[in-house]
Design a protein around this nucleic acid. Structure first.
Length: 358
DNA sequence: TCTGGGGTCCTAGGACCC
DNA sequence: TCTGGGGTCCTAGGACCC
């Protein structure tokens, strides 16, 4: 018996949930995003496999997707509550499996810690259990740590199972681009390339001191290990505790006056505060994010004199920050983030980070 | 082509203290 | 007159993920 990390990832989750409640959509190119209006400023949340065949994918502006889509394509609005419910169905099904530790990392994916001789058999059992309970398909990556399990899933999609361990890491990943690693985005891969590091194998063989000089003590060491598929293997089922809540909006028409900006800030700050208040936790800091048209983003924030549970005080802080914005420029997006104090005994440093990076 | 909304974590650099 | 070195806290900004 050995310890394994399974990464369970729902196939085209959002599109699948929509098709489940509207079976007549099966087989059609289904694109979910924004309010489902292809003339608005919004992006694609998920496209069904049929839509992906036309080059439509997550994050793509809806207007572009509309241009690529065939005549029978169906555009649908995002329905967060429906996906939240479906996610709960999936997670509670998995949590009920005997002998597993479950760590949720998103609406549609999680890690499972299992002890088994035959992890493929466990993976197949997981897929059957999820499909029987929800009618939804998933892919499963098997690894000897979270990094390898997560990356393995991509090779199993759709509806498959793939195992990636120290044994086959370089055979499978060695010649892949660094961008294919979990946690390496366009910026980091470009910086790596500037050091002559373009493949996973070259990252593994790179001089760690050089990476530390480029990326700092933590990230330099982390990226170097990532080249060899090294990562944490502990699956942690400690309930996730939010550090902050935020509300942001992209305006269909840019805001052009300070009054309009203030009105929007009051609304956003109030709603971000309400999420914190719902958890009964005071607000520590207030951050603003502004995107000036056409696309320059700035973020900044302020620590409050003391943690507060006073809604008006949080709103006042957001408005005061907003007064420092450049009044000459049109505002395309506004966001307010409220950072919360940690609950009793909840020091962030004590928890395994599961979002943003592994 | 024109780019959502909700999050997390890391780093650099300045201020301040001893 | 010219000036250390370490530690901590804070803010701004960057990068990534789902």
């Amino acid at each position: 018996m050995a310890d394994w990390v399974l990464h369970v990832d729902m196939d085209q989750f959002i599109a699948a949930v929509e098709i489940r409640r509207r079976p007549e959509l099966a087989g059609l190119p289904v694109i979910v995003g924004g309010r489902g209006d292809t003339t608005e400023r919004a992006v694609v949340s998920t496209a069904s496999y049929e839509a992906r065949a036309f080059g439509i994918g997550s994050g793509m502006p809806l207007r572009i997707a509309a241009r690529k889509a065939p005549d029978d394509a169906v555009f649908l609005p995002v329905d967060h509550e429906a996906y939240e419910e479906a996610s709960d169905e999936v997670m509670s099904t998995l949590r009920a499996l005997p002998g597993v530790v479950l760590e949720v990392i998103g609406w549609d994916e999680c890690f499972l810690g299992v002890v088994a001789d035959d992890p493929e058999a466990v993976a197949r059992a997981v897929q059957s259990a999820v499909f029987d309970a929800t009618g939804l398909h998933c892919s499963v990556g098997i690894g000897d740590n979270k990094v390898r399990a997560k990356i393995a899933t991509e090779f199993g999609k759709p509806q498959g199972v793939f195992r990636l361990t120290a044994e086959n890491w370089f055979a499978v990943m060695g010649e892949k681009r660094t961008r294919d690693l979990w946690g390496v985005g366009p910026k980091v891969s470009a910086r790596l390339a500037a050091h002559g590091i373009d493949t996973v194998r070259r990252l593994a063989d790179a001089d760690e001191a050089e990476l530390v000089a480029e990326f700092g003590p933590k990230m330099g060491v982390w990226y170097h290990g990532l080249g060899s598929g090294i990562g944490p293997s502990v699956v942690d089922d400690t309930p996730w505790v939010a550090r902050s809540h935020s509300r942001e909006t992209t305006f269909q028409e840019n805001l052009t006056t300070p009054d309009a900006v203030e009105t929007a800030l009051r609304d956003l700050a109030g709603r971000a505060f309400d999420d914190c208040a719902a958890e009964g936790r005071p607000v520590l800091r207030v951050h603003l994010k502004v995107r000036y048209a056409p696309f320059e983003t700035k973020t900044f924030g302020r620590k409050l004199a003391a943690p507060t549970s006073d809604r008006d005080e949080v709103i006042r802080a957001a408005v005061a920050l907003g007064a420092t914005l450049d009044q000459e420029r049109e505002v395309r997006l506004l966001g307010v983030r409220a950072e919360m104090t940690m609950p009793e005994g909840g020091d962030p440093a004590d928890r395994t980070p599961v979002r943003g990076r592994i």
